[in-house]
């Protein structure tokens, strides 16, 4: 049994189609990240699995249960972090954690969670006085207090500073290592690359790609380089005998697996023209590039 299962999930808001038939699953002990541009349907997907929205069509299961009809049996076993808010403005982290702990049969200790997420110093301040990052970390602590088997995290690191991010990442990884199934959304692609086993990229309510972060694009190996001035892409392509793409004014990509002779030819060609290299990398497309390419392509396909 998967921790989370969505099969051909459709969600319509009146006339508007938010999700147009998406399928994915999350196993126990696995982190899956849902990526997509704003308005792609990420939050709708997560909130349907949490039981806040009723699917227009399709099937969702969390720990084998229906999020709406089995709500009472399911909620003690899930932890939820909404995209924003969810805490009494006047209540301090210590008090709200103790309150939430009282809802569960075998809660984690509030003091331990405060410590884990670096909130001990502000444990007595009202929620509205906390910084954005501190508020986010408290929301994560509240999601963890009931020892969930499944975690839903909607943009868990939005507004969190780099040190806080590290703490959040460590806490999420630790949950995964204890067998919790984690479904998260994020705009931080390098973070997802480090954290998630699999990503599901959705755009306009459909899955446009899914897989491990390193393989999701199915891209070829490439040689990417940056130089100190603009070069003639067509001339270089002719000289090397492979395709060369300009990603930016001084960023280029040779669409070919790296080899010693390719790199030698490239540097020799640059040297003849007095152009200096400022960066040289070999490898597959990064998640961010895959993401931008897929989302752009989807936009063009729809616009035609």
């Amino acid at each position: 049994m998967s921790a989370i299962d969505a099969e051909d999930l459709h969600v319509h808001y009146g006339e508007r189609v938010a999700l147009d038939g998406i399928s994915f699953s999350v196993d126990a002990g696995e982190i899956v990240a849902v990526l997509g541009p704003n308005g792609a349907g990420k939050t709708t997907a997560v909130e349907t699995l949490e039981g806040y929205r009723r699917p227009t069509a399709g099937r969702v299961r969390v720990l084998g249960l229906d999020p709406i009809s089995d709500h009472t049996r399911l909620v003690p076993r899930i932890g939820v972090m909404l995209q924003r808010g969810g805490v009494y403005a006047v209540m301090s982290p210590r008090r709200v954690l103790a309150l939430f702990a009282s809802y569960y049969d075998d809660p984690r200790s509030p003091a331990e969670l405060l410590d884990l997420l670096g909130l001990t110093g502000v444990a007595g301040s009202p929620f509205r006085r906390l910084s954005g990052g501190e508020q986010q970390r408290l929301l994560l602590a509240l999601a963890l207090v009931g020892r969930p088997r499944v975690l839903f995290l909607d943009e868990p690191t939005a507004g969190v500073d780099p040190a806080g991010r590290l703490a959040v990442r460590d806490v999420i990884s630790a949950c995964r290592n204890e067998g919790v199934g984690v479904l998260m959304t994020s705009h931080e692609l390098d973070e997802v690359e480090r954290l998630a086993e699999r990503v599901v990229i959705i755009d306009r309510g459909r899955v446009v790609a899914a897989g491990a972060p390193g393989e999701v694009g199915g891209g070829e190996e490439e040689v990417r380089f940056a130089v100190d001035r603009e070069i003639d892409v067509l001339e270089l392509a002719a000289a090397l005998g492979v395709e060369v793409v300009a990603d930016g004014p001084r960023d280029y990509r040779v669409v070919s697996p790296s080899s010693p002779s390719l790199v030698a030819h490239l540097t020799a060609w640059l040297a003849e023209r007095g152009v200096s290299l400022t960066d040289l990398r070999v490898g597959r497309e990064r998640l961010e590039e895959v993401f931008l390419r897929l989302v752009r392509a989807e936009g063009e396909r729809r616009d035609r």
Partner: peptide
């Protein structure tokens, strides 16, 4: 707050 309490026991 009310929304968040909806997914607690």
């Amino acid at each position: 707050v009310l929304k968040r309490l909806g997914t607690t026991p």
